[in-house]
Structures are given as structure tokens and as C-alpha cells.
Simulated scan of single mutants.
Amino acid sequence: MLRFLKSLSRTVHEERCQDPEPRPNNGDGDGDGPTSLTVWRKSLFVGCSGFTVINSDGDLVYRVDNYGGRRQQEVVLMDASGKPILTIFRSKQKLNLVDNWLVFEGDISSKKQKPIYRARKDMDFLRAKVKRLARFYRVPYDETLGYVIEGSYVNRSCKVLDESGNIVAEIRRKESVTKGVSLGLEVFDLIVNQGFDSSLAMSIVLLLDQMFL
């Protein structure tokens, strides 16, 4: 499956390069267009749940390996070599119906380590038509320095918007260039616009996966 995804990512990238309009780059930081990543909701290790993320050159970029099932108190986003980049921690609070998720740099090595982002599942039912899924804020808490996620993670159709309403990242269904091949919901695209950190965008994917399992 991984070999097929690598081939698929390279094929799509080659087709985009023939298009005169700006298209996603390969995720290495070069180029003027957004970054296109293929996300596979599966770990490469047997007995693990997690994620495997490759760029449009077919190179492994990020990985997540969970040995205790999908729903975890801690989820670690690693680079291709296994080095922790970000850690997502579920913070359960008493008398609070909504869990908070904290995002830390690297691995959580100290209880004194402070989070860099905080996320919360949106529970504003009065605005259900907006389809707002979650809020993602920088720490210290400030609504003017955060992001809003809208759409449907279940259907792999989400947009991440900044405080000005600009789209900084998107989750989209993966289109196969091979006839008769259905990728389903376990494989999808993560499009990261220029100026937004792709690892941060992937952490939002992990947050949504924990929120909407």
C-alpha cells in the first residue's frame, strides 16, 4: 500500500507540474505554491495504529505510531527518523464537559514544560450551520492569535482558517489517478498553504482524529 501511495503521489505531482497554474510543491519548503502531503491513517509498524505521511516525491515526512489503540492521552508526531516534533496531550478537567488538548514542542520531558497551543472541540450548537469543528489557539490564550477548523473531518473535508478568515490548510479526499481504485477515507490529502507550518497542520489532523474518532 505504501509503495502504491508513493507512486500515486509522484504521478499526481508530475501532472500538476504540467499545469501552468501554481500548484502544491513537494513539501520540502521550496517553491511558491502550497505543500501537498498524502496522509495514510495507518502506522508502518505491525500492531500499531497511527499515521504515515509522505510528500509528493514519495518520501516519508511524518509518522505516528500508537501501541495502545487510536484514542490516546498522548499522541506524538515524529519526523521520518522517529524524532518527536510535537506532542498532543488530552487535558481532562473536572466539571468541564469538553476536553482540552494541549500541543507541546518535541516530547513532553518535564511537567514544567509549557504548551505552545491549546485546542478545544467546538460545542456551539446554536451555530451548527457553520459546521465549526474546533478552535486552535496559541498559548497564552488569545482568540486573535488562533485558528478555526470548519467542515467535516468524518468526510475528510476541512478548512483551517486564521483570525482573518484566510485558509491556511485543507483536508481533502484523495483522488486516485488509477481507474477502479478506491482509496476510501483512510487516505487523504493535507494541503498546507505557504507560510503555515506543515507539522502544525498535521497536529491539527491528529487533534481532529482524536476529537471525532
Rank of each mutant, 00 (worst) to 15 (best):
K112A: 14
Q113D: 11
Q113R: 04
Q113F: 07
Q113C: 11
K114I: 09
K114C: 09
K114S: 08
Y117K: 10
K121V: 04
D122Q: 01
D122P: 08
D122H: 01
D122C: 10
M123L: 12
M123W: 05
M123G: 09
D124R: 15
F125D: 08
F125E: 12
F125A: 13
R127L: 14
R127I: 10
R127W: 10
A128Y: 12
K129F: 15
V130L: 13
K131A: 04
K131N: 06
R132M: 11
A134S: 13
A134H: 05
R135V: 15
F136H: 06
Y137I: 08
R138Q: 14
R138F: 10
R138P: 10
V139A: 05
Y141P: 11
D142P: 09
D142T: 00
E143Y: 10
E143A: 14
T144L: 15
T144S: 15
T144G: 13
T144Q: 15
L145K: 14
L145I: 09
L145G: 08
L145Q: 14
G146S: 05
G146F: 03
Y147K: 03
V148Q: 10
I149P: 09
I149N: 09
I149Y: 05
E150M: 08
E150Y: 04
G151K: 00
G151L: 05
G151V: 01
G151T: 07
S152P: 07
Y153L: 02
Y153M: 07
V154G: 14
N155W: 00
S157E: 13
S157L: 11
C158G: 00
C158P: 02
C158Y: 05
C158W: 00
K159I: 06
K159H: 06
V160H: 05
V160D: 01
L161C: 09
D162N: 03
D162R: 07
S164E: 11
G165V: 04
G165A: 02
N166C: 13
I167L: 07
I167N: 00
V168F: 02
V168D: 00
A169F: 02
A169Y: 02
A169D: 02
A169P: 01
E170N: 00
E170S: 00
I171A: 09
I171V: 10
R172W: 00
R173P: 15
R173F: 11
R173I: 08
R173E: 15
R173K: 15
K174N: 12
E175C: 14
E175Q: 14
S176E: 06
V177E: 08
V177T: 07
T178F: 15
K179N: 12
K179G: 11
V181N: 09
S182P: 06
S182N: 13
L183P: 06
L183Y: 03
G184T: 00
L185I: 04
L185R: 02
E186H: 14
E186G: 15
V187G: 02
V187P: 05
V187H: 02
D189I: 09
D189F: 07
D189Y: 02
D189M: 04
L190C: 05
I191T: 08
V192L: 07
Q194F: 15
Q194T: 13
Q194W: 12
G195H: 02
G195Q: 07
G195F: 06
F196C: 03
F196D: 07
F196S: 02
D197I: 04
S198K: 04
S198T: 09
S199T: 01
L200V: 11
L200Y: 04
A201D: 06
A201I: 05
M202G: 08
M202R: 09
S203G: 12
